[in-house]
Structure formats: structure tokens, C-alpha cells
């Protein structure tokens, strides 16, 4: 199974079962460290047989909606709960992808998630890795899952 499909399955699983939102995948593309505008990013490192980074990039509005649905709360502004839940989302996604890449569970390890947000920032591609991005569409908004792997 290709990496694209692994990302799509992992993301749909979490959105349907944990966040209770439908997420429709778009066409995967190679990321080039595009600027993220008014966004929130949750990210986590993978180390071991596969080394790299898993990130979820959401426009701030989509981050509010996703974390609101996840936490079952009305959320109106970017607060610690939102940042925390987006980090946790990256953690769960990485856990699902790890399960697919590493069925024995022993050869890939995850770091802890970090969340960043801002008006404009770029996450650079790690030298020597490929960056696979899969866009997803929500009813009202979108987000991108990025997997950088050596």
C-alpha cells in the first residue's frame, strides 16, 4: 500500500472515529515548504527505521472547528485547549501511520508533539527527505497532512 493511502486511511479513521467530522482527501503532492498563513500546525518526529516528521497544518478557523468537534466544545478563539488538541491530533495520526509502516511496533518511535501557530511561517523540508502532502476537505475548510520521511 502506498504512503498516500496510508495517510488517507489514518486520517479518515481519526476524523470519523475521534473527531466526528468527515474529511475528504484531495490530490497528494510534493511539499516544498510553502508559507503557512494564519495557521496552526501540530507536528511530531519519527525516529528509528523511518526517520522524519508528521505534521497537520490547519488554517486557524479550521483548527478551531476541528478542536471544537474533538473536544465537544464551542471554541471561539485560539487557546491552550486548541493548541493541545491539535498536538494530540498529530500524535494520534503519527500513531496510526506508525502502525502501518511498522506492524511489529518496535522499529519506529515517536517523539512528543509540538504545536505552532502564527500569521506566517514556513516548515522547511528536512534535507534528504521527501515531503508528501495530502490535502483534506471539510464541510467548511480544509487542512493538509504532511509526512517527511528519509
Amino acid at each position: 500500500m502506498g504512503l498516500e493511502q496510508t495517510i488517507i486511511d489514518a486520517t479518515k479513521d481519526i476524523f470519523v472515529n475521534m473527531i466526528m467530522m468527515g474529511a475528504t482527501p484531495g490530490t497528494p503532492y510534493q511539499g516544498k515548504g510553502e508559507a503557512l498563513i494564519d495557521s496552526v500546525t501540530g507536528m511530531i518526529n519519527l525516529a528509528g527505521s523511518h526517520s522524519g516528521l508528521l505534521a497537520i497544518h490547519l488554517p486557524t478557523q479550521a483548527a478551531l472547528e476541528v478542536s471544537g468537534s474533538f473536544l465537544d466544545l464551542e471554541i471561539e478563539e485560539l487557546d491552550d485547549d486548541v493548541l493541545d488538541s491539535i498536538g494530540e491530533l498529530a500524535n494520534m495520526l503519527a500513531g496510526n501511520i506508525k502502525a502501518e509502516l511498522d506492524p511489529t511496533g518496535s522499529s519506529i518511535q515517536l517523539s512528543i508533539p509540538t504545536t505552532m501557530h502564527g500569521d506566517q511561517y514556513n516548515i522547511e523540508r528536512i534535507a534528504g527527505t521527501s515531503s508528501l502532502c495530502v490535502p483534506f476537505y471539510l464541510d467548511d475548510g480544509d487542512f493538509v497532512i504532511e509526512l517527511q520521511l528519509t
Partner: peptide
């Protein structure tokens, strides 16, 4: 511990926060 590989981030201004 095992090391992953480094990532860099830059921008006009962003904040980084940690899990609770």
C-alpha cells in the same frame, strides 16, 4: 533514546507551545 532528524521553521512571527 534515539534521535530523529532536525527540522527548521521560520516566519514573520509564530509561537510554539507544548502539550499540557
Amino acid at each position: 533514546t534515539t534521535l530523529a532528524i532536525p527540522t527548521t521553521v521560520m516566519g514573520k512571527g509564530y509561537s510554539i507551545s507544548s502539550p499540557k
